[in-house]
Nucleic acid binder design. Structure first.
Length: 567
RNA sequence: GCGCCUAUAGCUCAGUGGAUAGAGCACCGGCCUCCGGAGCCGGGAGCCCAGGUUCGAAUCCUGGUAGGCGCACCA
């Protein structure tokens, strides 16, 4: 079964024939060059339809070495090209030396059969060879609600993971819980204060406390569950209790928000377990053993400059030999690799890019290649409403919450909008547009295509048309340019997914979805599907429409956006 | 001062070595006796600047300019 798109297979096969022709040209002395180029890499799909279905630029690339004009090289290739190939209609030289291949429409018919036979799996490939790959994203601090940039990285991480999975990788999604360190100490103290306030005590939040109302809610719940006697516990136990309770509640809250947003994690990894299992001590030992540490001023340093970082970083502070956040993070990443991931992708917010160099240094110091860790920075989001930037949360906080946004524009629009932009570009999010139910709203445009497809089948059923099985239809009747454009685009889905996954650019899939919706709408306008006068054509078009509905559904599933039957 | 991100049409953005740089919005003009007009078709307008690499550059390199973000023995 062909996992790749048929055009890709044809492209490779034609490239191999071009390579053979080149070899023959060299053997008979028509051309001279040292190494036979990898012709497959010089194949492309031309932008202009008149330039054929596939083009090869190898003649242009070879010209300087062979010391012949590209057109002459092209001629030499064409003279020796084995044209006995079922899909090839004609090959010609064009422009400065492009080899243009025009294919017979038969390939589209076969491509459509490929799509139909794979069904919901169309687009999935074994490209990644089941390589174990981890995507860690969102990883919001468990000290409060999530904000909009986390909604963006949630969408980006989730869809990147979907794409990697579809591209044949063994993917795990992970959320890192920063439940150790001073910030959660402050969180616990803040909860304790709120608890005591509920008991009528006159106490105030510490200066580093968390003032949000949510801690009052959590304190109320704590009071209900555990009663009013918590202050009787010994101090250490009490601190631990408040801290744990606050973290557990907030993480559960974050998890609910994320699941409502369509994002689920395979692993929720607790930073504290690193301390409890001695992983920090272990990693420090390992770095020492490998010779990447030094002592200075009473502190232990990681010699990250060995791997290109600006300066060395502190692992253990002078004060009480306390580990820094970096130390925990190094231990965490060591743990990731110990779990067998061959590739680790971290998605961070814009405020952490200064951290990349030291983290990559640490990965190398532990003996992994530099590219075993990839860090993607998701840039900031500026929410726009009524032409102005929205600055404050509805609940009066300093930042807009992820839940505010999702509540206001819905999951589909939020995800789709975040996924329309390249992750490393700062973006403006037009909230007015996102809720607009009109043709101006891209998410509706795509969903409308799906609903319209569903409606064709509803109508067909109402009017007593028989829905043909794919093998019953004569697909050679699909000769309209709009039909062929649609098939061409659907046939390319496996490669689109692979490219989006490999380049870590999930926004390519929203582009694809928009393109597919456009091709369908054009088809719908120009080609009537249900036609009593032409039952054979109706059958072929119903099969095409069925394939389109499925492929569009597959793409929307990858994006985590719903595919409505009606709207 | 150093580092990272960004700079493409009036606006929001695609396009990361190929032929005539695309889309949506905005603006102007068309298309429903017929499967959902949340649709389709047509029109004008653009690669921040200066060098370089290449047969070929929006794309790669160098140097500028502008905006954003970051540079802790915090997390």
């Amino acid at each position: 079964m062909a996992l790749r798109g048929r055009l890709k297979i044809i492209s490779d096969q034609l490239a191999d024939r071009v390579a053979e022709a080149l070899a023959r040209a060299r053997d008979d002395g028509a051309l001279s060059f040292d190494e036979l180029p990898e012709v497959r890499k010089f194949m492309e799909v031309p932008r202009e339809r008149e330039h054929g279905d596939l083009a090869c630029t190898v003649a242009l690339a070879l010209a300087s070495e062979a010391k012949v004009s590209p057109r002459r090289i092209g001629e030499a290739i064409l003279e020796r090209l084995d044209r006995d190939y079922p899909y090839l209609d004609r090959a010609e030289i064009a422009g400065p030396g492009f080899l243009n291949f025009h294919l017979k429409p038969l390939w589209l018919e076969h491509a459509l059969r490929d799509i139909l036979s794979r069904g919901e799996d169309w687009g999935r490939t074994d490209h990644g060879g089941n390589l174990k790959i981890q995507v860690e994203f969102v990883s919001a601090n468990p000290t409060g609600p999530m904000v909009v940039v986390q909604a963006r990285s949630g969408a980006v991480g989730d869809v990147l993971a979907n794409l990697l999975d579809a591209a044949g990788y063994d993917v795990s999604r992970e959320f890192y819980i920063n439940d150790a360190g001073t910030q959660v100490d402050h969180l616990g103290e803040s909860l304790e204060v709120r608890y005591r306030q509920l008991l009528g005590e006159d106490v105030e939040l510490p200066p580093d406390g968390y003032p949000g109302e949510y801690l009052v809610d959590i304190a109320r719940k704590l009071l209900e569950e555990k009663g009013p006697c918590l202050m009787d516990h010994p101090e250490e136990e009490r601190r631990r209790l408040f801290k744990d309770y606050a973290v557990r509640e907030i993480v559960a809250w974050q998890r609910r928000d994320l699941e409502a947003y369509g994002v689920k994690f395979d692993v929720w990894f607790s930073e504290r377990t690193l301390y409890e299992t001695g992983a920090l001590a272990d990693v420090i030992e390992e770095l020492k053993r490998r010779g990447y540490t030094r002592e200075e001023g009473g502190a232990l340093w990681f010699r990250s400059t060995e791997f290109g970082d600006d300066k060395d970083r502190v692992l253990l502070r002078r004060e009480a030999g306390a580990p820094t956040y970096l130390t925990a993070d190094i231990a965490y990443h060591r743990n990731k690799f110990q779990r067998g991931f061959e590739k680790v992708i971290d998605i961070w917010g814009p405020d952490h890019h200064g951290y990349i160099a030291r983290m990559k240094a640490a990965v190398q110091a532990l003996g992994h290649p530099a590219d075993a860790l990839e860090v993607l920075i998701v840039q900031w989001v500026k929410l726009m409403k009524g032409g102005e930037a929205v600055k404050m949360s509805k609940r009066g906080g300093q930042f807009i919450l992820m839940s505010d946004l999702v509540e206001e524009v819905g999951v589909d629009a939020a995800r789709f909008f975040f996924l329309m932009r390249s992750p490393d570009s700062p973006m403006e999010f037009d909230m007015d547009l996102a809720v607009e139910q009109s043709d101006e709203n891209p998410v509706y445009y795509v969903q409308y295509a799906h609903a319209r497809l569903a409606s064709i089948f509803r109508r067909a059923e109402e009017e007593g048309y028989r829905i043909p099985a794919p093998e019953e239809a004569d697909l050679s009747l699909l000769q309209h340019e709009a039909e062929r454009d649609l098939i061409r685009l659907m046939a390319a889905l496996p490669e689109e997914i692979i490219e989006a996954a490999e380049s870590r650019e999930p926004h390519r899939m929203t582009r694809y979805a928009l393109n597919l919706a456009t091709k369908f709408h054009v088809f719908y306008t120009q080609c009537r599907v249900l036609d009593r006068e032409r039952p054979d054509l109706t059958a072929a078009r119903l099969v095409l429409a069925g394939a389109t509905k499925m492929v569009l559904g597959n793409v929307l599933r990858l994006l985590g956006v719903s595919a409505p039957e009606s709207m």
